[in-house]
Each structure stands twice: as C-alpha cells, then as structure tokens.
Design a protein around this nucleic acid. Structure first.
Length: 270
DNA sequence: AGTTTAACCTGGGTGC
DNA sequence: TGCACCCAGGTTAAAC
C-alpha cells in the first residue's frame, strides 16, 4: 500500500504523539513480520526518549539515544493514534505507549512490514544503498540520465527501484510516467535528458500533491487518525484500464511490467 | 553485472 | 455456501 506520500502522511500524523517524549512500553503481540521483531526491542525502547521521528524513503525512523527503530509499512501496514479504551483489532501487531499515555497501534494484515533495531541506522543494510529522496535537490534529470545509460530495464522498473530513487511505488510510477508522456516499457537507457527532466518534474509534483491530499486510499490505507487519503480522485491512469484517457479520450491500456500492473495511454505516452 | 522470478502473507473479489 | 483462483499500495534473495 503505502508509498512515500502515505508514509509521510503517517509521519506527520503521529509525530506530535511521540516526538520529544519518553516511551513507557512497547508491546509486541505478533512478532512474525517480514523479519521477526527483535526480542529485545521493548527493553531497548522502554524509558528512551524519541528525539525525532524521521522518514527515509518508505521507512519511518524512531530516533533514540542508542540508535533507531526502522519501521516499514509493507503493503498493508498503517499506524494509528488510539485511546486506551479502543479494543485491539485483528492484525494490530504492536502497540507503543508513551510516558504521557499516548498510544500508537501498528496494524498490518499481510505482515510485509517490519520493526527493526539499528544502532547506526544510516549504515543499516536496508537503508545504506537507497537512492536519493525524490523531493531533494539531488534528484534531477541529469542524475536519472547518467544512471540509466546502457540499462535495458523498462523505465518504470528503473523508477520503482529504490536504488534509483526512493518512495516511488506502483501508483505514483504509473501516474508520473503518464504525466511525463513516457511509455512505461521503454528501455531506461534509451530515454533522453530532456525527457528525464520532465519525468523528475512530474514525480515531484505528483508526490507533493499526494502528500497534500493525505495520500491515496484504494482499500485500506488510513492516516494516523484512521481517515483515508483523497488523492485517489486525482489519479489519471492507475486503476483506470479501458477508461478514457483524460487527455485524448482513447481507452487506456494495461500490461504487466516486473509483475506489477501498468496502465498507460498508447497515444499520449511515447 | 543486469534482469527476471519466486517468495513472504492475508483478504477481497470473481466465476464455477 | 463453498471452493479455486487471481489480484493487491513492497522488497529481498535467489535464479537466470
């Protein structure tokens, strides 16, 4: 589910609830996530102050003195601020209680997410090889152009590879390529500088707008207050196969690229 | 080294 | 109602 806008929406929502506060208790109800939740995670956190709640790509980072917790939402994860009286639901796997009683619940039906500890999070294997943030100055058309020379992978797969740039998942890759007028299946190495500049502009614009709208809710994404995001109504191509292209009115095509559903306009994207 | 595929899970929808 | 099958916002690790 969550791509960068959904993770950022979550971060902004739970930040006031935990940043600058000490942890009273971390309760793990189901440790079997993508990787097992470390046994000693609760004791590492108890009493520790969360100095900052950061984001790197799709990872949320709870920064404490001795290190950081790496939280990933996987395909179906969400974090909500709840009250003590609210009963725990199926698939509520972890609960973080702060000193002042504030309560965060991690919900993840498919359990593709993770809660991991690192004493040097920037060097962690899951973080170390990540590409630039899409909203940072390093992410430019020149960067994509240079990195893609000689590559035969479809540009959509290239864009969704976290070593290229972080945070762009299936929804926003489809949307950005449509707006940039680039065919998703075209070899990354055969796209020129000008078109990559255009792509960067649209990736930035799409992600920023989605963050403003609180992310995209297809089925189950909810923000920290349990509310859905509203970017779904702005989607140009994702989930619209066969429906008219918003530019030329011809029916949108669908294919599969890197086992991901890909929607595009044969006429407007080249 | 680059690229593709299988795997990790649950749940919702569809068609028989 | 039940069952088999396909699909889903991600990402790693193994296989080609």
């Amino acid at each position: 589910m969550p791509e960068l806008p959904e993770v950022e929406t979550t971060r902004q929502g739970i930040r006031p609830c935990c940043e600058g506060k000490a942890v009273r208790q971390l309760r793990v109800f189901e440790p079997r996530l993508r990787w097992p939740v470390p046994d000693d995670l609760p004791q590492r956190l108890e009493g520790a102050t969360i100095h900052a709640l950061k984001r790197r790509g799709k990872y949320l980072l709870l920064i404490v003195d001795e290190g950081a917790v790496l939280v990933h939402l996987g395909m179906s994860g969400s974090v909500r601020v709840v009250t003590e009286s609210e009963p725990r639901r199926t698939h509520d796997h972890l609960e973080l209680e702060m000193e002042d009683g504030a309560l965060l619940r991690y919900h993840d039906p498919r359990r593709f997410g993770c809660w991991l500890w690192s004493d040097q999070w920037e060097q962690h294997p899951l973080i170390r090889h990540l590409g630039p943030e899409p909203l940072s100055p390093e992410f430019t058309g020149e960067y994509l152009y240079r990195l893609s020379r000689g590559r035969q992978v479809p540009v959509k797969s290239f864009l969704m590879d976290s070593k290229t740039v972080v945070g762009v998942g299936n929804i926003y890759a489809n949307e950005s390529l449509f707006k940039a007028g680039i065919l998703p299946g075209r070899a990354a190495g055969r796209i020129g500088l000008d078109r990559y500049k255009r792509l960067v502009t649209h990736v930035r614009d799409t992600l920023s707008t989605a963050i403003t709208q609180g992310g995209t809710t297809l089925r189950d994404f909810v923000n920290s207050s349990g509310q859905p995001g509203y970017f779904a109504q702005s989607l140009q191509v994702y989930g619209r196969e066969g429906q008219p292209c918003r530019l030329c009115n011809r029916p949108l095509s669908q294919s599969r690229l890197g086992q991901r559903t890909t929607v595009f306009c044969r006429h407007c994207q080249r």
